Amino acid sequence: MSLLVLGTSLVAGTLGAPWVDKLDKSGLKILNYGINGVQLPGIIEQVKTLQIEKPKAIVIVAGGNDVYASFPELKQGVFGNGRKGRPDSSPEEFKIEMLELLSLLSEMYGEVPIGIGNIKPIGEQLDTNLNDQLRAFNGVIDEIICTKSNYSLLDFYTPLSDLCRQNNLAVKIESDNLTFMINPSRMIYIYSLYKLTLGYYSYDSIGDARGFYCTCDGSHFNERSAAIALKIVLDYLSTLK
């Protein structure tokens, strides 16, 4: 039996610490369908092309890119339609698209268990406009979880918020400056540094040196946060019969 994992770069694991493939501890074959930069419309199009047998369960970790696209500063270029979605995302559009995705999965695979991750904090400070909007998107996920018995919430937000609060030593980075937080050149540099040093510099240490404690670059998992994500999903899978 397999586990189908859908989502963003947090699932793909190419721009930060990978964790999805470690879910093989559950005894399931892991099908990692993460796409860097994807928004929900891109995941919907991807699912329409899937040719796999019915999985034992599905995990969805998405929404961060949809949050980014709801801000005017990020509606152009790589942060707009270039992220395989719409350049004017909103919690209302996100709800429509998430329900469309879930309906499509139901048509394809029946009432398979689906774990839906809420969106982790972005940046080190929680009281920013960015995280205020993110919490509105998470409210949509909470609403949807209640609609069907085969949906389960994978709560990434709470423990990763706690991790942010533990960070008393990090540099006060510009968490409310979106073009600082979502910086593709920095993401590529950090990824390249990690690869060129063959992991000698961990994502934890690379992020720490730049004032990031909960991520390696403001957006993607370091080893600390990846370990939390892994435990959340493994705990969920352990509840399935």
Rank of each mutant, 00 (worst) to 15 (best):
N32E: 04
T128V: 04
E73Y: 06
F79L: 04
I228R: 07
L234M: 14
N81C: 14
Y109G: 01
I96W: 15
R186D: 00
D217E: 05
S202I: 03
M187E: 07
M181Y: 01
V47N: 01
T239Y: 12
G123C: 03
L240H: 05
L178Q: 04
D127S: 12
K84M: 11
G117K: 08
L40M: 10
V61Y: 14
A62G: 02
I44D: 01
L178V: 08
P121M: 02
L50T: 05
T128M: 11
I206K: 00
D155Y: 11
Y194L: 10
L196I: 10
D21A: 10
P55W: 03
N222E: 08
I114N: 07
L6H: 04
P113R: 08
D235E: 15
N36I: 09
L3I: 06
S192D: 14
I141H: 12
V112Q: 11
E111A: 14
K241W: 07
I232V: 10
A229N: 03
G218K: 06
L240M: 07
L240G: 00
R210W: 13
D176S: 07
G77Y: 02
L198I: 10
Y203A: 02
L3D: 09
V47M: 03
A209G: 09
K195C: 00
T49V: 03
V171A: 04
G77P: 07
A170H: 12
N183C: 15
L6K: 12
S161F: 11
E143P: 11
K241Y: 03
E100N: 14
C216I: 05
Q76P: 06
L126G: 01
P184R: 00
N138I: 05
V59D: 08
F94T: 03
K54N: 13
I173Q: 04
P72Y: 11
I145D: 08
T197S: 05
T49M: 04
N129P: 14
Q51P: 06
L230A: 13
K29T: 15
D88A: 00
G207D: 04
R210P: 07
I173G: 05
G207S: 09
I190Q: 04
T179S: 14
I122S: 12
S238F: 09
N138S: 12
I188S: 12
N129D: 11
I119D: 11
L154T: 11
F94Q: 00
D162V: 08
S238R: 03
G207K: 02
D127K: 13
V171W: 03
K241N: 14
M108G: 02
G207V: 01
E174F: 12
L234T: 08
A62P: 07
K54D: 05
F71P: 10
L196T: 14
E100G: 02
D176Q: 08
E100Q: 15
S192F: 05
P87I: 09
M98H: 12
S185W: 09
T14L: 08
G34F: 15
D21W: 05
N131F: 04
P55C: 01
L230Y: 01
K22Q: 15
F137M: 08
V59H: 06
I43P: 07
S26L: 02
N138Q: 14
L105H: 12
T197W: 01
